[in-house]
Nucleic acid binder design. Structure first.
Lengths: 234, 234
DNA sequence: CGACCTCTTGAACGCTTTCAATTTTCGTGG
DNA sequence: CCACGAAAATTGAAAGCGTTCAAGAGGTCG
């Protein structure tokens, strides 16, 4: 279950929090950290469980979600290789995981004792600035997410999402979705059927089209107009 | 505009981040901080402005919100006396305010240089633990908020909100809303009419009733069943 | 190549929004 | 202290839109 192989230094330093740490601290991490391998659908942690480990995604993909009263999943984040699970940080003991986490595909997670993260924070001013910065960014992300969900028109949500992904991919006309449409729909708190109909509508209006996970943005300006409410074609 | 009167020590120590600080640091704060007085509807800061000051509410009430494409407000937080505006923290320079902030009523805000907050963080392990804890709690709040908005049934959202307030007030049958129903509706991303109809429905079913801002919870268990999806009377 | 899951499409229903009008509440000034 | 006016809250009716249910097409992985 717990593989005790030493984690390569580059693997550790890829995460901002650890990037500028001295060799001594990195050695300490390598001695106390381990890699947690996950099969698809394997649970990493459960919502409301006490935070025992802090995780960083080395490979694969995991989903962070809550369960609805109907038993379905509401996706909050899809984390891939290189992403820190900021929701698994706890400096003071006692925090509970705010979300469930399960592997989507075979994955490897860097697993660190939260107390060790706290220790690093106390030893390195740079690490503590990075940590606080990461938390602030997470707050900004969640505010954006809540704003997205506060709009009742499905077309607006989808347009916002596509525009975001478009920009995140360097304004490339073509890009791939980070996950299946099912998960995208859940992230947007829409039914898969509704997402499908929105994409069809965008295709019919020459705004954007999709083939499987590949998205083509044909008219970014129109997309922006929809998001800003200028264009009613939502 | 900027009143340079010295801030009383108790006023500063009421906030967790400053509570266990040494007298020396508190003196430093008193010399560099000031009180910003706001009239009703006066703007404290705007979304996407660079973070220049970090604020703590000493008296009155402010709203943190975004504007929709329709020009209306989406409320994220109502902050009252004793609340820290955690969205105005910035350790590294360069963060932008994620939300607009405007006074609802005449208010006084403790105004501190964000660099000074950073300085405190580096000097006091306790303060830095409190700060990170505050940010983690803000993340948990926002996850809860996003979950609330992901439910499409208005009755569920209102029931969740009432149950939350009920518990926050120590399970007292009767309590007052922290703000007007207009703002509560906006927080729930519902139209005021929809909130009104939900409350009427709850009154007619003996679950809860409201007179102005005063709420009476008649059947907390029923409320919980609605939130958990057992009871369909939403 | 087949089983399973994802995605798509159609149609009907239910619920929130929207628009409009009335009542109530609350703050300000007389 | 009461009166007035503006904003908030409530109620009704109609319309728009996402959900739900059902079925079929397409893709993926063993």
């Amino acid at each position: 279950m717990l593989e005790r192989k030493m984690v390569p230094v580059e693997q550790i330093r890829q995460f901002r929090i650890f990037r500028n740490l001295g060799d001594e601290i990195v050695s300490d991490i390598r001695r106390s950290a381990w890699i947690k391998s996950l099969a698809a659908d394997e649970v990493l942690f459960r919502q409301n469980d006490p935070v025992r480990r802090t995780y960083f995604c080395l490979s694969g993909q995991v989903k962070l979600f809550r369960l609805t009263r109907a038993g379905s999943e509401k996706i909050f984040t899809i984390a891939s290789s290189g992403d820190s699970l900021r929701d698994s940080i706890s400096l003071k003991p006692g925090r509970l995981y705010p979300l469930h986490c399960t592997a989507i595909s075979t994955s490897e997670m860097l697993s660190i004792d939260p107390e060790f993260i706290a220790d690093i924070c106390h030893r390195s001013p740079d690490a503590r600035a990075s940590l606080i910065d990461a938390l602030e960014q997470r707050i900004d992300e969640l505010v954006d997410h809540a704003e997205l969900l506060s709009v009742d028109k499905a077309g607006f949500r989808v347009a916002s999402y596509l525009l975001n992904e478009y920009r995140r991919n360097g304004n490339e006309q073509s890009f791939r979705l980070g996950s299946s449409k099912k998960y995208v729909a859940s992230y947007l708190s829409l039914q898969p059927e509704t997402l499908s109909r929105c994409l069809r509508h965008f295709r019919q209006n020459g705004i954007a089209s999709s083939v499987n996970r590949r998205i083509e943005i044909h008219d970014p300006e129109r997309l922006e107009q929809i998001v800003n409410g200028v264009d009613a074609a939502a």
